[in-house]
């Protein structure tokens, strides 16, 4: 067991340099609601902790190009309390709201939720459907990466050892758009998703769906953007027949495991149930959002 080092740099470049120089395991500390638990339960024994919360740009939420830029370490409560963001992305907020208790959301961030790479992370499917873009900074500079390209397997990401996600960009969205996220857990709160579904869709003046993205969580090694499921809604009025097709595509994309949180069979079945409910919720929001 090596001595643990804690650093709290004040710039992204300093953070990146620390990570690049780490000899053993290094971990970025944002809200810490995963990292500290993993340390406490001795799942990980890092040599270096880089606390990024002293870096201003990872913490704020601001308007940008008609959309929003959200700091990777902005806390769940901060995001939920941002009225403009919450009004624009109710589905993302539904995901963020489900990241643990109020206490946990006082610390937990979307950056952490994404980079911890748990397949059941609640804010991740709605980020996928929102088309959020992660800003990734490393020694070679800045990359703008669609969020769905970040997690690669449970606990694994496409980030290099010396790269960090500093913020997310949520694009401007057309009128008559709506998103929603629901998950299934055996308890009403304080639980990890057994399955989760996010849908983001836009309608034209006649109520015909012009774009739709469907993402599922906790039913595969990573959250998945299911292109076929989105495509099933495009060009329709999101009627029952279209929803049925979308549900079938979502179920077909599930590659779940049996574990302590649920069985394969249950996860596939309930993913479809949620997909139907979430589609209706997203549609209702899109129709209301004139």
């Amino acid at each position: 067991m090596s001595e643990l080092r804690y650093e709290a740099p004040e710039s992204v470049s300093a953070a990146v340099a620390l990570l690049a120089g780490a000899k053993g395991m290094a971990r970025v500390l944002a809200g810490g609601t995963d990292v500290i638990v993993q340390m406490e339960t001795e799942l990980i024994e890092p040599e270096l902790i880089v606390d990024i919360k002293k870096i201003p740009e990872v913490r704020g939420i601001s308007a940008e190009n008609g959309g929003f830029r959200v700091g990777a370490a902005a806390t769940g409560m901060q995001i939920c309390d941002h009225k403009e963001f919450a009004r624009t992305w109710p589905g993302v907020i539904e995901g963020v709201k489900l990241i643990g208790s109020i206490q946990v959301k006082g610390r937990a961030s979307m950056g952490g939720n994404l980079c911890n790479a748990s397949p059941g992370a609640d804010s991740v499917p709605p980020m996928f459907t929102a088309g959020a873009i992660a800003r990734v900074v490393g020694p070679k500079g800045v990359r703008e990466v669609p969020v769905e390209q970040i997690p690669t397997a449970p606990g694994k990401t496409s980030l290099a050892k010396d790269e960090i996600v500093t913020s997310f960009f949520f694009p401007a969205r057309p009128k008559r758009s709506g998103d929603a996220y629901q998950r299934f857990t055996p308890r009403t709160e304080m639980d990890i998703a057994v399955t989760g579904v996010a849908i983001n869709l836009s309608l034209d003046d006649k109520g015909v769906c012009t774009a739709a993205r469907v993402a599922i969580g906790a039913v595969a090694p990573t959250a998945l953007l299911v292109k076929d499921a989105g495509a099933a809604l495009v060009g329709t009025k999101v009627d029952d027949a279209a929803i049925e097709k979308m549900v079938a595509a979502a179920r077909a994309a599930c590659k779940p495991i049996d574990d302590k949180r649920g069985t394969k069979e249950f996860r596939i079945e309930v993913t479809g149930v949620l997909a139907k409910r979430v589609a209706k919720a997203a549609l209702e929001r899109a129709l209301a959002n004139k």
Binding site: R187, E189, M190, I192
Partner: peptide
């Protein structure tokens, strides 16, 4: 307590 699911107040 995360996966040994005792009732919480909202349950």
């Amino acid at each position: 307590f995360l996966d040994y699911r005792m009732p919480v107040a909202s349950d």
